[in-house]
């Protein structure tokens, strides 16, 4: 069980308020991702849940129990740190067994659980090594192993993939998602990478300056961003935001069109411009278009290989049914 409720939680460091009053519920078994630009308070929020920081006011409840004043060790949560925080002087086995040892579990049970975790995480051959002798991905797995042996009420991940290279990151992303499917335990995952958020989350919490901008499933956020910030943050490449006369045609202050919702043509279209850069990825092609009279750059995605080059004139048509409209305050117009 691992239902986590934040009730009017705030956090200040001295005079600086990092988290203004905030309410949030994470359901049991849910994979929740906190996402936002750096400094948005997402890590602080995670550390508050972990108990590594005291809340300034408000309450944190884990499975209905008030955990606000409980020390981290007694909250039944496990955490995977950005730096992995492995104990360098202990073997992999001892690292993974450490929480069990602290809980005073007997040796046989410790070994059983460590062996099980190691086989799940493909670490069996490395159990007697020191963390210093492992690759980044293996260290990451040891950190996860140390978390799962405790059978915690929830896992907390603090940007766990940010120290891995791109290829490894993709692999670990899948492994963590699989792990979640298998364990069905609550996971809270902090990242600044919206791709990780979109691919892994059941529920995304978008944060900015300690405020929750929007909470919802990845597709909710993609389809109906509540405001300009979420619209710009979720989706890659970024949504094109167009203000002025073109937006006024749609009775909005600003309209947003995702690059993948624009069709291109050499001959005719609603908008036109000159290709500044074209990126050919094979499966898709991205055009960065200037001189449209709409915005500095309009980004367009086309399926497969499309042959426009630098300097070519290009015509574009947005799909009318997926134009997002925002008012003066940047809020979505339904």
């Amino acid at each position: 069980m691992g239902r986590i409720v934040l009730d009017q939680v705030t956090k200040s460091f001295g005079d600086v308020t990092v988290i203004p009053p905030l309410d949030l519920t994470i359901e049991d078994g849910e994979f929740a991702v906190f996402v936002g630009p750096s400094g948005c308070g997402k890590s602080t929020l995670l550390r508050l849940i972990a108990g590594l920081e005291d809340v300034t006011s408000g309450a944190i409840r884990i499975d209905g129990q008030d955990a606000t004043d409980i020390v981290p060790a007694k909250r039944g949560l496990a955490m995977v740190f950005q730096s992995y925080a492995l104990y360098p002087h202990m073997s992999v086995r001892k690292n993974i067994a450490f929480p069990l040892r602290m809980a005073g579990m007997d040796r046989a049970e410790q070994d059983r659980r460590v062996d099980l975790a190691a086989s799940v995480l493909n670490l069996t051959d490395y159990l007697e090594r020191r963390p210093g002798q492992l690759s980044g991905g293996q260290r990451q797995r040891v950190a996860i192993g140390r978390a799962i042996v405790r059978e915690p009420a929830a896992f907390l991940f603090d940007e766990p993939l940010s120290n891995l290279d791109a290829a490894l990151r993709m692999g670990m992303r899948l492994e963590i998602s699989e792990l979640h499917k298998r364990l069905e335990t609550t996971m809270i995952y902090v990242t600044h990478d919206q791709v990780e958020a979109m691919t892994m989350a059941d529920k995304i919490v978008v944060l900015r300056a300690g405020h929750i901008e929007q909470v919802g499933s990845p597709l909710d956020l993609y389809r109906a961003p509540r405001n300009l910030f979420v619209a710009g943050f979720i989706g890659s490449p970024k949504m094109n935001l167009i203000a002025g006369a073109e937006a006024a045609k749609h009775d909005a202050h600003t309209i947003g069109v995702r690059p993948e919702h624009i069709t291109v043509s050499a001959t005719d279209g609603e908008w036109s411009g000159v290709v500044a850069v074209s990126e050919h990825l094979g499966s898709d092609t991205f055009f960065h278009v200037h001189d449209t009279g709409l915005a500095d750059t309009i980004t367009v995605r086309a399926d497969g290989e499309v042959g426009f080059r630098h300097g070519d004139r290009i015509h574009m048509t947005p799909r009318a049914d997926v134009i997002h409209r925002f008012d003066e305050q940047g809020l979505r117009i339904a």
């Binding site: 460091f13 108990g51 590594l52 920081e53 005291d54 020390v71 981290p72």
Partner: peptide, 8 residues
């Protein structure tokens, strides 16, 4: 950065 208990 830490909790009250560890500060004490």
């Amino acid at each position: 950065m830490a909790t009250k208990a560890s500060r004490t």
